[in-house]
Design a protein around this nucleic acid. Sequence first.
DNA 1: CCTTTTGGTTCCATTATGTGAAACTTAGTC
DNA 2: GACTAAGTTTCACATAATGGAACCAAAAGG
Lengths: 261, 261
Amino acid sequence: MGAESHADGTVGKALDVLDMVASHGRPVRFSDLLEKSPYPKATLYRFLQTLTHQGMLTHDPETGSYALGVRLVRLAHAAWAQSSLAPIARPHVDSLAAETGETIHLAQLDNGQVLYVDKRNARQPVEMFAQAGKVGPAYCTGVGKAMLAFLPPDQLQSAIARQSFHRHTQHTLASPEALLAELAAIRTRGFAYDREEHEPGIICCAAPILSRGGRVLGAISVTSTTARTSLAAIEAGIERIKTCAAQIAAEAESWRFPEQN
Amino acid sequence: MGAESHADGTVGKALDVLDMVASHGRPVRFSDLLEKSPYPKATLYRFLQTLTHQGMLTHDPETGSYALGVRLVRLAHAAWAQSSLAPIARPHVDSLAAETGETIHLAQLDNGQVLYVDKRNARQPVEMFAQAGKVGPAYCTGVGKAMLAFLPPDQLQSAIARQSFHRHTQHTLASPEALLAELAAIRTRGFAYDREEHEPGIICCAAPILSRGGRVLGAISVTSTTARTSLAAIEAGIERIKTCAAQIAAEAESWRFPEQN
DNA sequence: CCTTTTGGTTCCATTATGTGAAACTTAGTC
DNA sequence: GACTAAGTTTCACATAATGGAACCAAAAGG
């Protein structure tokens, strides 16, 4: 067994197809999908039919191409509001952004990858390619490492197996060993740095958001550029960041136990 | 065959379950779901297992409740970027918002309902999922009526069948007949009004976004309040709105035909 | 402390459902 | 008008979903 994404059952395969359409990034024609998919023509066709019929995909009859459907946008609104930390964290993220004047990222872990669920821009906008809903690598970002560091061993292992370890910059930790050492340091330190490991000139300090039981809920980071400030300067505010993380965790906790009616 | 939502096949049912979790709005326990669902215990259980395993749901072991998973947020980001008009329309929406200083709505039709894919709040910054992704009724909103008016007869019929015709205000067109008459007027006029039909004090002018072939792609509206301005004042800028709609349509058209490589 | 209830998970024989090779139907080409 | 590529439909077959019932765990209750 390789570390495969072995789709279980019919719905798994269907969701697989959905992902394939998503990953293509623009309307995609049947035959293009056919090449990429492991499924035979008829099967793929049926999936596309079903998904389209369900509103998860749209099919443009003029060009014969498929794209993700609007039902997903609707679902995502609910997902974002209900399962992500974003709505809970919003006020805290806001005030942190206001106080620091820097860019704030709120992220969660999705299948070994970092999923940004909210972002607050600095007054002086920094050019970065992260927006709410976007995914990024875990092994070379502050929020990613902060979360990985506090994962239970088994989950950490499977998360590491999913990292691609591409050397984005000369500071990137591009091996499992280097990463593991760093994670240990983060665990004792209590927060993570990003020393231009993903993008040159971009640095950050990130704190994990942990439930009372120690479960990793997400992470929050303050990001800036080497042009404007230094890691040490950001680190000066680390207590503030940690407090923010703790507040979010506390509220998340109570959210989890909806007052029984 | 009644006008049912007949989930076809296994994946249809699974997505059904997903919707059920979504509609509940907050983490939901197994037994709550069981009541609402038409499925027997074991079946529902298996669906939840599968969806959770797929990352479409998350299961909190502490409370035993299910919530929408982060994979949806990821998918939605792609959906929003790829299938909605929002990214294409963004610059046009921006400039319309800047020029009018009013709230702009960009919407598409989803199963007879209005789905807001973007919103510009004149002075407030953009927030993706918080605002976009919401659904609303079609029969009593400017964008909704603008889209309905230009639907081909068969689609219009099925869309009307899905309207709930609740009398939100005393101006609401609360019957199919009244609505049809209004739609005819909109068709000749070329754009739609909202005369406080959904919320008291809220008025707007909305223009449909039509493909060259006349297909309804979406609608765009300028919204304000009776306290601040009047319908006539908004209507004064209708040509600007229509131009904006036309520009979006034109770009959407070319987007549909990706340059062959 | 033992019993009952409630909420959740697993079994397994039955059968409906999904499967995919191949045949078919359109467009588009040369 | 024959040829090719792209998409759709068919159908015998086997896999995969189904759901009643049994099972288990942990509260509630006597």
